[in-house]
Simulated assay, not measured.
Amino acid sequence: MLTYRQLLILSYISSIEGGIQASFLMQALHISEKTLKKEIREINQILPIKEQIEYSARRGYWLSLVSSETQELIEASFQNNLEEYIDKDRTNQILMILLYEKDYISMETLANRLFLSKSMLNRHMDKSWRLRKYIEVSPVKGLKIPWSERQKRNFLAKYFFLNTSTLPLLNEKIDLEKLMQKLYYILQTLMVEHHYYVSGLAFTTFYHYLLITIIRQQQGFTLEDEASPLPVSNLMNEIALTIQKEL
């Protein structure tokens, strides 16, 4: 059976004629080249021999044939991953709110923030393995994600991105577009000045981490003290000082 991510990869490759470049898939799915290749290998282990995903440097990835058997496999996998397709946005909204709460939040408050009834929110949480895995539930206090601040920032930087639709969930008034543009300019300028060239997923994740750090620090979230602080490069020191001065 195909996983949710494998279904997404297969849907992209099968729907775009002439082939699709690896860089597009990596950017669209927020995954590394190593992860993409691993997923392709696993997909090909499931697909019939005559319907293997092929690759060339010029065309990228493509499929020559999609039989009725493969269509049935896709449909069965879709049904198996139905929660991912239908409820992923709502799950992300719930996680986003809880990741930006300093303490427990009641089911009633969370339901009101999402414009849902408590019964509908309960049903969604019961069937979402992600929510069951990440959220600590107290019958008295309510809901909370019991992670350290560092864990929360890393998770948000890798899997979430703030935008004009998610920001209102945090009850935060901020000129996000202006902040994003200014931060991007600071990073690009200083990295070039220090002859430190980073691009692709590495740069994007670092940029997201700093953006989230700025917003969370404005809201009063601070990192725990480290027993053995890591040494900081001249570039990182200058980035920190420039952000403090200009943002």
Rank of each mutant, 00 (worst) to 15 (best):
Arg5Ile: 08
Leu8Ala: 07
Ser14Asp: 05
Gln21Glu: 09
Leu25Thr: 00
Met26Gly: 01
Thr35Asp: 06
Thr35Val: 08
Arg41Gln: 13
Pro48His: 08
Ile49Gly: 05
Lys50Trp: 06
Tyr55Val: 01
Ala57Val: 10
Tyr61Met: 00
Leu65Ile: 05
Ser68Cys: 05
Thr70Asn: 03
Thr70Pro: 01
Glu72Met: 07
Ile74Asn: 00
Ile74Trp: 00
Ser77Cys: 01
Phe78Tyr: 11
Gln79Tyr: 10
Asn81Leu: 01
Tyr85Asn: 05
Ile86Asn: 07
Thr91Cys: 11
Asn92Met: 08
Gln93Ser: 12
Leu99Lys: 02
Leu99Gly: 01
Lys102Ser: 12
Ile105His: 01
Leu110Ile: 07
Met120Glu: 15
Met120Trp: 14
Asn122Ile: 08
Trp129Gly: 09
Arg132Thr: 05
Lys133Phe: 14
Glu136Lys: 14
Ser138Glu: 07
Lys141Asn: 06
Lys141Ser: 06
Leu143Ile: 03
Leu143Arg: 01
Trp147Ala: 04
Glu149Asp: 08
Gln151Tyr: 05
Arg153Glu: 08
Tyr159Glu: 12
Ser165Phe: 14
Asp175Ala: 15
Tyr184His: 11
Glu193Ala: 12
Glu193Lys: 15
His194Ala: 11
Ser199Phe: 12
Ser199Trp: 10
Ser199Ile: 09
Gly200His: 12
Leu201Ser: 13
Phe203Trp: 09
Phe203Arg: 08
Thr204Lys: 13
Tyr209Leu: 13
Ile214Phe: 06
Ile215Ser: 04
Gln218Gly: 08
Gly220Ala: 04
Gly220Cys: 05
Asp225Arg: 13
Asp225Tyr: 09
Asn234Arg: 15
Asn234Glu: 15
Leu235His: 11
Asn237Ser: 15
Glu238Leu: 11
Glu238Cys: 07
Thr242Pro: 10
Ile243Trp: 09
Gln244Ile: 14
